[in-house]
Simulated assay, not measured.
Amino acid sequence: MTGYTHRGRASARIVAAGSVGLLAAGALTACGASSGVGGTSDADGAADRTLTVYAAASLTSTFEQIAEDFEAAHDGVDVKLSFAGSSDLVAQIQQGAPADVLASADTANMDKIVADDLQAGTPTDFASNALMIAVPPGHPADVASLADLADDDVRLVVCAPEVPCGAATERVEEAAGLTFAPVSEEQSVTDVLNKVITGEADAGLVYVTDVRGAGDKVEGIELPESDSAVNVYPIVALEQSPEPELAQEFVDAVLDQDGQRVLSDAGFAAP
Rank of each mutant, 00 (worst) to 15 (best):
C31P: 04
L118Y: 11
S128K: 11
P137A: 08
T198C: 07
A17W: 07
E186N: 07
Y4N: 06
S19H: 11
L81D: 01
A144F: 08
D265H: 13
A181I: 07
V101G: 01
H139V: 05
V183E: 07
A55I: 06
D152T: 11
L118K: 11
S61K: 12
A12N: 14
S41N: 00
L102V: 09
A270W: 05
D152L: 11
Q187Y: 10
P140G: 04
G220D: 01
D106S: 13
A269V: 06
S34Y: 03
D210S: 09
I113D: 00
G36F: 02
R261Q: 14
K112W: 06
S184I: 03
R7N: 14
M110L: 10
A167Q: 05
H139N: 11
A24K: 04
Q260H: 05
L149T: 01
T209N: 06
R9A: 11
A17C: 09
A17I: 04
S188I: 07
I66A: 12
L81G: 06
L81K: 03
T209M: 08
A203L: 07
S264G: 15
L263V: 03
D216L: 15
G36W: 01
V251Q: 05
A229R: 00
A229G: 08
L149V: 01
G177R: 13
T179E: 12
T198M: 08
G199Q: 03
V230R: 14
G76Y: 01
R171W: 05
A160F: 04
H74E: 13
V20I: 07
V172A: 01
G213D: 11
T169F: 00
T40A: 06
D256E: 10
A17G: 15
S128T: 13
Y4V: 04
A167D: 09
E162T: 10
D153A: 12
G96L: 12
V143P: 00
G3S: 12
T124Q: 09
T29Q: 12
S228L: 12
T179R: 14
A103T: 04
C165N: 09
L223E: 07
A115G: 08
V154T: 01
S188Y: 01
A56N: 07
L28E: 06
A175T: 09
A91E: 10
